[in-house]
Structure formats: structure tokens, C-alpha cells
């Protein structure tokens, strides 16, 4: 048998993320796929792909923990689960030092989790029942603008004069976008306005601490959002190497801790100031 591996499965509303770690919390493999309509099947595909990347098989799994909306749909590999907020916090605790605010912008919801000096959660917030400030908002707008989602980051960067969008509501924002198109505004400027709107909606949920880390699918695919957030906050914002995997990795770290194979945060592996955006 090869070395044991620890698996975190984050079955999100939009994407399924699986991370495979060794006992030292090193990322060995991962996979990300649209969650689709059968969470179990998608999770199975992601699990096998990430294990293959790690050079492991299902027999090598020492422990696995699931999280996300579909966390109870993966009983073929684990019955242990934690909330996505818990997993995000766990990832932050083991990867970033000091008092931090984690801002995760996902497909369906966004979360702000604050950790104290000891890495304990001091508070968390989730967006309310609307899509504003989430990936779903950007998806809807990419459709309205007839722009591929993956092109939005580049378009926003190319903007010279941002269009400000004021509404809370995705439907109202869509109307605002149409109005701006009618008035001849450039798509680049509108897209930057949409990014600005996402950050505004998120930052009005809570007051961030000095050190801010941004994660989630929207952050992974739109690095410019982090740069804009840093500009708005007037200080650097950390964007980790794998922003979309934070929840899955946090779940995998729970899997390690549950087996007693790993202690507290390793200072050598903490994200350093040099990695700030």
C-alpha cells in the first residue's frame, strides 16, 4: 500500500471540488467539476481524478470529510461532514497566520469568516437570500452581455472608465446593464462595474480585519476582483494559490486532524506577506 492520503470533498452548488492531501497537509491532487444534477456521480469522478493526480487509489484513503450543499451525497466515501464555513475556517487556520478575515465568493453564496489570533472562528456571515455579490450574479450578467464567463476578468482589466451599478438586486442590475448598453457604454466598463458591485455587496456584509484573504470560485477565475478589493480596502489582499480549493482542503485537514495525524498550523507553511496581491 502506498502512503495514506486524506480527502476533502466540497460539493458546492455550482462546482464540486476535491482535494487530496498527505499527512503533512501537502496538496497531492485535486479536481474541479461542475456539480450538475447528480452530486454523487460528480463527486466520484472528481475523487478518482484527484486520486490519480496524487498517484493514489481509493484504497489509500485514510480518511475523508465532505462539505458543501451536497455533503451528504457522498456516503460512498465518507459519512463525516463539516459545514463549508467550518472548512474554510480550518483552511485559513492552517494556512494564514494572525487575525484574518476570509472572504469566499462562491457560485451560490458568499461568506465572510473571521478568525482570531488563535485561529478560532470569531464570527461568520453569509449573504442573504439574494444572488447579489455571488458567482450566480456574474453568470447571469455574462449571459445578458453575451460575454463568456471566462472572458470577464480580461474585459474588466481593459476598462478605462468604470460604469457604476447601484442596485442590490440581480434583476434590477440586469435592467441597469441594459440601460448602459442602450446609452452606448463599453462592455469593458460595464464588466468592471459588475466586479465593483460584487465587491461592494460583499464588503457591506461585515467590517474586514486588517488582514484579508479571498477565496472561492469567483476569486479563482477573476483575479482582478481581488486587485479591485485591495484598492477599495486600501491594503493588500491575500489570494492563495488555489482559491477555489480552500473549502475542500479545509475538509481534508479535518480528515487529517480527526485521525490525529496533524497538529496545529505549521508556521513554515503559512502564506507569507510576499504572496500578497
Amino acid at each position: 500500500m502506498s502512503k495514506p492520503v486524506y480527502v476533502g470533498l466540497d460539493i458546492g452548488s455550482s462546482r464540486t471540488k476535491v482535494a487530496v492531501l498527505d499527512a503533512d497537509r501537502q496538496l497531492l491532487g485535486y479536481a474541479i467539476k461542475k456539480s450538475g444534477t447528480d452530486f454523487s456521480v460528480t463527486a466520484g469522478i472528481c475523487l478518482d481524478a484527484s486520486l490519480e493526480m496524487a498517484g493514489a487509489t481509493r484504497q489509500d484513503i485514510a480518511n475523508a470529510v465532505s462539505t458543501g450543499y451536497g455533503k451528504s451525497n457522498v456516503e460512498f466515501v465518507t459519512t463525516e461532514s463539516k459545514t463549508e464555513i467550518g472548512c474554510l475556517a480550518n483552511w485559513g487556520r492552517h494556512n494564514v497566520s494572525g487575525i484574518i478575515t476570509l472572504i469566499d465568493i462562491g457560485g451560490q453564496d458568499n461568506k465572510i469568516v473571521k478568525l482570531d489570533q488563535e485561529g478560532r472562528r470569531s464570527s461568520f456571515k453569509m449573504n442573504r437570500k439574494c444572488a447579489a455579490g455571488t458567482g450566480a450574479f456574474l453568470e447571469e450578467m455574462s449571459y445578458r452581455l453575451d460575454v463568456p464567463l471566462e472572458d470577464m476578468d480580461g474585459l474588466a482589466r481593459a476598462s478605462k472608465e468604470m460604469v457604476k451599478l447601484g442596485s442590490y438586486c440581480t434583476v434590477f442590475s440586469a435592467t441597469e446593464v441594459l440601460e448602459n448598453i442602450r446609452n452606448g457604454k463599453k462592455v469593458t466598463d460595464i464588466v468592471k462595474g459588475l466586479f465593483y458591485s460584487v465587491i461592494k455587496r460583499v464588503l457591506e456584509m461585515d467590517l474586514p480585519t486588517e488582514k484579508v484573504v479571498m477565496t472561492g470560485g469567483v476569486v479563482a477565475h477573476n483575479a482582478y476582483i481581488v486587485e479591485m478589493a485591495a484598492e477599495m480596502l486600501g491594503r493588500p489582499v491575500i489570494r492563495p494559490e488555489y482559491p477555489q480549493l480552500a473549502g475542500a482542503m479545509g475538509a481534508a485537514i479535518y480528515a487529517i486532524n480527526e485521525k490525529g495525524d496533524a497538529g496545529s498550523a505549521d508556521p513554515n507553511r503559512l502564506i507569507s506577506e510576499g504572496e500578497l496581491q
Binding site: K82, T83, I85, G86, R120, R121, S123, F124, M126, K129
Partner: peptide
């Protein structure tokens, strides 16, 4: 009401309290 959001919020809150 979003039952799923409510559930996640409550579970995360209990986790937070227990950790503290």
C-alpha cells in the same frame, strides 16, 4: 426562506460555539 442556508448557518454557528 432558504432551508439550506438556514441549516448551514445553524450548523456553522454550533461548530463555532463548540470550538470556542
Amino acid at each position: 426562506i432558504s432551508d439550506e442556508q438556514t441549516k448551514t448557518n445553524i450548523e456553522a454557528f454550533i461548530e463555532q460555539i463548540e470550538e470556542g
